[in-house]
Simulated scan of single mutants.
Amino acid sequence: MTPRTILIVDSHTLVRQGVREILEEHSGLRVVGEVGNGDEAVTVVADHRPDVVLLEVGGAGTDAVTTVRRIRRQSPGTKVIVLSMQERPELLRALLEAGIRGYLLKTVTRHELVAAIQAVDDPERIVLSVSRRSLPEDDGAQPAQLTEREREVLELTARALTNRQIANRLALTEATVKRHLRNIFAKLGAGSRLDAVNRAVLAGLIEPPQNRL
């Protein structure tokens, strides 16, 4: 099996070395570089096209958003996971809109970090490990109202279950699951399963999906 390639971006050399040591304990992960800022990250991404970029967010959140966009333009297949000590709802919203696939506080364990890297291969999953206060607050618009069944379907969707698995779990038909998802998409204004999960989490309609070993 080809190892998953990873670029570490953090302004602190000691942190980069520590993360590298954690990742290199796993045979399925290979660190292809470690750099200290966004400009260097974009250059390495252009050369190596890593599977995952672990991007530390420093004091300048806007720079992080710009870096994410530049990385995705250089290598659309590269997944960006943000590591942060900050709990800023507006920053989380901007980074999600820029296309990150995960946002982890630096208080996560090494097992949660590895699990997050493994989870982003699923195109329908986003990994959030944040406190409730990190989630963006309502901007004044009336939140969408989901039925209890729709919420159950969406929570299972957030855990990357297929329509068939959701149907089996809830004793429904696949057609019924699809109908619930269509209704959810319409209520949330979502264009995909991942978009629906993101919007529901940001609106506080479901809990952020957790990924633990």
Rank of each mutant, 00 (worst) to 15 (best):
R4D: 02
R4M: 10
T5S: 11
I8K: 08
S11D: 13
H12N: 08
L14I: 10
R16A: 04
Q17G: 00
R20Y: 01
I22D: 04
S27K: 12
L29E: 10
L29G: 11
G33V: 00
E34N: 03
G38S: 07
V45E: 01
R49Y: 04
R49C: 06
G61E: 05
G61F: 10
T67V: 11
R70M: 07
R73N: 07
P76E: 11
T78A: 06
T78V: 07
K79Y: 05
V80D: 13
E87S: 14
R88M: 06
P89L: 11
L91P: 13
R93M: 05
A94M: 09
E97T: 08
E97V: 04
I100F: 01
I100Y: 00
L105I: 07
L105A: 13
K106H: 08
K106P: 05
V108E: 00
V108K: 03
V108T: 02
R110G: 05
H111G: 02
H111M: 05
E112Y: 02
I117N: 01
D121T: 10
D121Y: 07
D122V: 06
V130D: 12
R132Q: 15
S134K: 07
P136F: 02
D138Q: 14
D139F: 08
D139S: 11
G140R: 11
G140A: 12
A141M: 09
A141R: 14
P143C: 00
P143L: 03
P143R: 06
A144H: 11
L146C: 12
L146M: 09
T147I: 00
R149S: 15
E150V: 08
E150I: 08
E152H: 14
L156P: 13
A158H: 14
R159P: 14
R159N: 13
A160E: 12
T162V: 10
N163Y: 14
N168E: 15
L170H: 11
A171M: 12
L172N: 09
L172Y: 14
L172F: 14
E174Q: 11
H180L: 04
N183P: 00
N183E: 07
N183R: 04
F185M: 07
G189N: 03
G189M: 01
A190Y: 06
G191A: 09
S192Q: 03
R193A: 02
L194E: 06
D195G: 03
N198Y: 00
A200T: 13
V201F: 09
V201C: 08
V201K: 03
A203N: 07
G204T: 05
P208D: 03
P209R: 10
P209S: 12
N211R: 15
L213F: 12
L213Y: 14
